[in-house]
Amino acid sequence: MRKLVSIICIGLVLIIPARVMSWGFQGHEYIGALAWEYLTPEAKMWVSERLQKVNEPSLSVVTTWADRVRGSEEGQFLGPLHYANIPPEEAQLDMQRDCPNRRCVVGAAMNDIEVMFDTNQSLQVQGEALRTFSHWITDMHQPLHLGYQEDRGGNDIRVTFFGAEMNLHRLWDSIMIRGMDLMPNPSEQAALHPLPTVTSSDWHAALIDWANESYQLARRHAYADLENNAELGEIYFNQARPIVEQQLIQSAQRMALIINAAAAQQ
């Protein structure tokens, strides 16, 4: 029944114009709300103090800031930081080749983590870093934000999904997450998927590992040997939707792990 309702929701969404933004506002906000459930009391205070400085009401809402400013001069500067494109013949991300000067989603997350962990930084500066980090870490978990360079992460691949024409990137960004009200609410989801007990002495290496996970998911599931103008439907949806849900949960957990660690050392 849940699968049937999801497909019906997809069908309804396909006839409604959608803002094309990574994971959509709904996906980002769900991740932020779920990450909040995983934070320690100390980390919740750490986040609240910093969000107050940047006039953002919650971790859920702040995850959308980098998309909200896309039409501004600042948003244009941030544009390349939403993704990292990798040549299809390469097996993994190479920071020098695919993210020169850290001008990609992985490098941007690294920069923000350094600020968040720097106890000499002001609440304002750390709040600004948290504001963008919360978006980069979520974008990193949308597989086509680590997609192929030659098709711009699926943007140049046209597909027909349940009869509606779109590009592959939009399908994964905006369409696959429709009907998310069928997923458990954040508090229930956190109870179903407890935060892993992970400690890291190298968050930069962890970010690269997570980016490579997304890249492999893109290769195996998003692209899946698709040809241009492929017709996709229930089979593709049923294979892709669990990947999307997994990535939403892992994104929230990993955001929380890093924030908890940053707060613990302040």
Rank of each mutant, 00 (worst) to 15 (best):
V105G: 00
L34R: 00
T40C: 09
W65T: 09
M95V: 14
I259L: 12
H135E: 13
M140K: 03
W65S: 10
E213D: 09
L257T: 00
G71Y: 08
P196D: 01
A256S: 10
E128H: 14
I15P: 02
R103W: 05
E165K: 12
E245N: 02
A224H: 14
L217P: 02
T197A: 15
L168V: 07
A164E: 12
Q149W: 08
G11Y: 00
W36C: 02
I208V: 15
D202L: 12
I157N: 03
P196S: 06
L195Q: 04
G32R: 00
A164Y: 12
H145A: 06
M255L: 14
N212Y: 05
I86K: 00
Q76A: 12
Q239W: 05
L130D: 04
H169P: 08
R158T: 15
Q76G: 09
Q142M: 11
A256L: 07
P194T: 12
E165W: 08
L14H: 06
R103L: 10
Y30D: 00
M166Y: 03
N111C: 14
M45F: 00
F117H: 09
G147P: 04
P57K: 03
G27H: 02
D112E: 10
H141L: 04
T40F: 08
S122I: 05
A261S: 12
F25A: 13
Q96C: 09
N185A: 03
Y30A: 01
L4A: 15
D173T: 07
D98Q: 05
A262N: 04
A222W: 02
G75I: 10
L171C: 07
L195F: 06
V5Q: 10
M166I: 05
V62W: 04
V105D: 02
R219S: 05
D67C: 04
I10Y: 05
W210D: 01
R102I: 06
V47L: 08
E114Q: 15
H135A: 13
L130H: 08
G153K: 05
C104A: 09
L51A: 07
V159A: 08
P87D: 13
V47W: 01
N260R: 05
N229Y: 12
L171V: 12
K3C: 08
E90H: 15
H193F: 09
E74T: 11
T40K: 09
S251H: 02
G179N: 01
M166V: 06
L232I: 13
G27I: 05
I259Y: 08
R254Q: 12
D209L: 09
G153D: 08
P17N: 12
V106Q: 04
G71I: 07
Y223S: 05
V125Q: 12
D151L: 07
Q250Y: 02
F162R: 11
M166L: 14
H221K: 13
Q216E: 13
Y30Q: 02
P143V: 01
L39W: 03
T63R: 00
N212S: 08
V61T: 08
C99D: 11
L14E: 05
H82D: 10
E56S: 14
V5I: 15
A84P: 01
K44N: 10
F133P: 00
G154M: 03
A262D: 02
R50I: 02
M183W: 15
I31G: 02
Y83V: 10
L182C: 11
M183Y: 11
V125A: 15
V62H: 04
V20F: 14
A261G: 05
F162L: 14
P57L: 06
G107I: 10
A190S: 15
R220Q: 13
G75T: 15
G27P: 06
